[in-house]
Design a protein around this nucleic acid. Sequence first.
RNA 1: GCCCUUGUAGUAUAGCCCGGUCUAGAAUUCGGCCCUGUCACGGCUGAGACGCGGGUUCAAAUCCCGCCGAGGGCGCCA
Length: 428
Amino acid sequence: MDISRTHLIEDLNSSMEGKDVIFGGWVVDLRKLGKMAFLTVRDVTGMCQVIVKGDSMSLLEGLNRQSVVRILGKIQASKAKDFDFEVSATEIQVLAKAEYPLPIDPIGRLESDIDNRLNSRALDMRNQKTASIFKLRSKVLASIRETLIKRKFIEINTPKIIGSASEGGADLFGLDYFGQKAYLAQSPQLYKEQMTIGLERVFEISSFYRAEKSHTGRHLSEFTSVDIEAAMMDYTDVMDVLESIVVDVFKNTSENCKTEQQEIGYEIKVPSSPFERVTYTQALEELSSMDIKIEFGEDLQDSHLRSLGEKHPGFFFLTDWPMKLKPFYIHEKDDDPTLSRSFDLQYGYLELSSGGRRLHDPEQLRSRLKEQDLDPTSFDEHLKTFGWGMPPHSGWGMGLDRLMTVLIGIDNVREVVLYPRDPDRLKP
RNA sequence: GCCCUUGUAGUAUAGCCCGGUCUAGAAUUCGGCCCUGUCACGGCUGAGACGCGGGUUCAAAUCCCGCCGAGGGCGCCA
């Protein structure tokens, strides 16, 4: 069976009138008008109208919507409202037939439940709104890589199967590794820090895993994290990197993804920079003026962040958190050791990223582990690298899925993840 | 773990509060027939549903209980 095409649909145009073309795609619509018929066919690059007349009407035999077709025909001018040319078909080959009933409306004229759409995710990609989200996601990833590589960051891949759960914090998924207990990584934290001793500036974009039974629109058991770690940078330096990544993402997609924005029905607005920087201490004062009293050292609950988010509706950095709220590897401030060189990037109430300056002195790191009731001996593999010339370094991790929801103005990460994994969903 | 909401054809919905009018309605999809410029084509026509189990009642899609499924929120989230 010949499946070759001479053109993608976006390569066809009205100046090609009279030219014979072969293209393919999915039948979106099929309108039979007695002795003539119109069909619209879509490939990943666009949609085009095909006209069938007279003797050719027999070509429509067995044709239905959403089937895969290969069209042989001639370009001609069109009287259609939405097309300035069309293809008069001389042959229509059905390469694969769509079976009815389909589990969702793939055109999206009737918007299906998210549950039905996720159960039929591949078919959901025929819906241009959904497809546009993932075309945008691809652009976002490309943009992040471009910005980082320009700044001399090297992309790395760290293991997702790890042997130790001793980092503490979120619950990990356990698994059997040839008889040994192993876990799915919740973060590349220790590995990316180690890599600064040779590669200096590294980044990773990958899935990580957290076994928390969260039921919200912003948590998943498997999520995509963008992580960087950079030698000889302080926390404010990596904040600048983060800010330029975010601004570049908004700029690139806003300028280069007009069609996708149209399909989604949302206009991407480039945020103004620099982002506001609010210290934890200032945040407490702001909350206090809203009659929300929080003791220094207390963590900010979701409700507090929502109140802060009302005051700072866009992107802002929340910096200089108390040391006691931060993990063992975070560096304290010189002028006040109860405060840390750390930050979160917020979008309103939503936490997008978290990072800071790391301890690079092994002795300090050992005593911090003990302070946090962690056993330094279980970090031997990690700590030994700190004796090999560990540079001062800083880094952050950002939830890509959350960034995507902010980019396109929706509030459920499941919309921007192909096959989301949460406590209630393991399939498909 | 806790709380709220919800379940009607393939899809998306009306009806439920206030039981009888429901032989469950309109849309879209799907099948058949008609139609030479549609563009959410149109016209005629046909098919297709009350998540499961129990209870109350003369009578249950409608009220109650249990189970199952779904959506959302809180909490958890170094």
